[in-house]
Design a protein around this nucleic acid. Structure first.
Lengths: 194, 194
DNA sequence: GTCTATAGGCAGATAGAC
DNA sequence: GTCTATCTGCCTATAGAC
């Protein structure tokens, strides 16, 4: 159990679990406190005790998601596999989300970006920036040791891969076909291999 | 003026114009009839005369968008430039949307997919399929005449490019930085060039 | 921490006059 | 075609009892 989870009560975490699922499937603007309360057999008012405004709930969702994602990236780093192995593991993080019939939380929120509170907007952008920085480092190592070949900067290439994975998730969901994601991801990654 | 536009009254088209803008910026679930009515100085009830339900309005939006997009692809075909030129022109279609501070209509709706009516869901998927088919044909020609190099099928490669462009738009908007889109798009396209 | 009850507002949609 | 008026329902949020 992570530090962030221990800081919250069990109820608060169950609220976040249900809300996270709803956002990843339906979007932030398409779920209500009543949806969450119903699923947990609580009342609307009880939810507001834990998260006074929907905006605060949203910020908590992104914070927890980002911590969890960062943890997964750290695990990949500690596995000490080579850059191609790390890239594959990174793609698997996305594939896992899609396998659970979900869209990336921050990809979903990026679509709704203009309707989010300032705090949520900053947190979403930070999530993508963190991803790009991590991936750029993997690509730089792979470029230096000769396992990756690409033109442009590692950061530019990281940007295009993160974009490709987010877009592939988004579109694959419209076809209920995770094979579409796998195909697109394979194409994105294969071009890097020498 | 296209056939589809002539089939509708001016008012209906102005409604679609405003609604389209709102969906591309805020999303389908984050705009209301009142938003559109206010901007056009009409009433809520007048809108319902033209589009009885929001779902029908949504389906009309996608239909018009798809017709317009198909028209743009036909123009590219008729320009008779080589495959790399067609690919660049295709990327420019996306860049134009983003320059107007908008997300692709169907990319936005793909995020909200689970909350859409069955009719809208089908229309969104059809839009992507149409794009992929067109792009796959361009890639196939480029592969055959030696201007493009890629592994896998043209359709798989088309899938990854469409995904990359949609994802790049989505993320670039979160940074208010169209340069991010340009960088990602350049990376996607450059790997194809021999 | 959770409840009942409710405020206040906005959503999509309709009836009927003009 | 557009209006005024209104219905019904859901939304976020809060007050106050337990």
């Amino acid at each position: 159990m992570t530090q962030a989870q221990e800081q919250r009560t069990d109820t608060a975490n169950r609220i976040l679990d249900v809300a996270e699922h709803l956002v990843q499937v339906r979007g932030f603007n398409a779920f209500s406190y009543a949806d969450v309360a119903g699923e947990l057999e609580l009342t609307n008012a009880a939810l507001h005790y834990h998260f006074p405004t929907k905006s605060e709930l949203g910020e908590a969702l992104i914070a927890r998601y980002a911590i969890r994602f960062t943890g997964a990236l750290n695990e990949i780093d500690e596995s000490r596999v080579d850059p191609p192995g790390k890239l594959d593991a990174y793609v698997d993080l996305y594939a896992d989300v899609l396998r659970n019939q979900r869209m990336c939380l921050c990809g979903m929120l990026a679509a709704e970006y203009e309707t989010l509170s300032a705090g949520m907007q900053v947190a979403v952008a930070d999530f993508f920036e963190m991803n790009e920085q991590w991936l750029a480092e993997v690509l730089r190592h792979g470029h230096d040791d000769g396992t990756f070949r690409f033109t442009g900067s590692p950061l530019d290439e990281a940007l295009s891969i993160v974009s490709g994975l987010e877009g592939a998730m988004l579109i694959a969901r419209s076809f209920g076909d995770s094979g579409r994601f796998q195909s697109a991801a394979r194409q994105l990654v294969t071009t890097l291999r020498r």
